[in-house]
Amino acid sequence: MKIKNILLILVRLFLAGVFIYAAAGKIANPAGFANEVDNYRMLPYILVTLMAAILPWVEMICGLMLLLGKWVRGTSVLIIIMNVVFIIAISSAMARGLDIECGCFKIGGEGAKVGFIRLIEDFIFLAGAAILYYFYSVGQEQMSGIDNN
């Protein structure tokens, strides 16, 4: 197996782990996650509640799909969209001087606050998803051993 393919598998599994871990805490506590989304003061309350109920499951499904290596391009697109939204939200909160929890991983009083580290994390996840999308799009025939779709 080529080194490139091994690296792609590592990127895929890394993102899978990140998104499954991020989703688990939010799925367990939608009310706590809603509170943290609401703290950004960017969305009307109905969208806050819908986001708290649905977004963690999008993350969980994306993580599982990457883990299984199925529909990698479609999953990558979703991860790219999510991370663009996260980057906008965190940047906006920082620009407004909000001292709030990120709502990224841990929920309920112990999570990390918004800040440059969270932004860098999201850019890394964004880059990982973009790499997956690119290589799984242009190199289908070379990667038959990695992606069956």
């Binding site: 109920a53 499951w57 969980m60 994306c62 391009r73 479609g74 999953t75």
Partner: peptide, 21 residues
């Protein structure tokens, strides 16, 4: 095809997330 996959995953997340919540 990529958009179809993404849309399906979102619908699946809604189908799981709303009852779970």
């Amino acid at each position: 095809k990529v958009l179809k996959q993404a849309l399906f995953l979102i619908i699946l997340a809604m189908a799981l997330g709303l009852p779970a919540n």
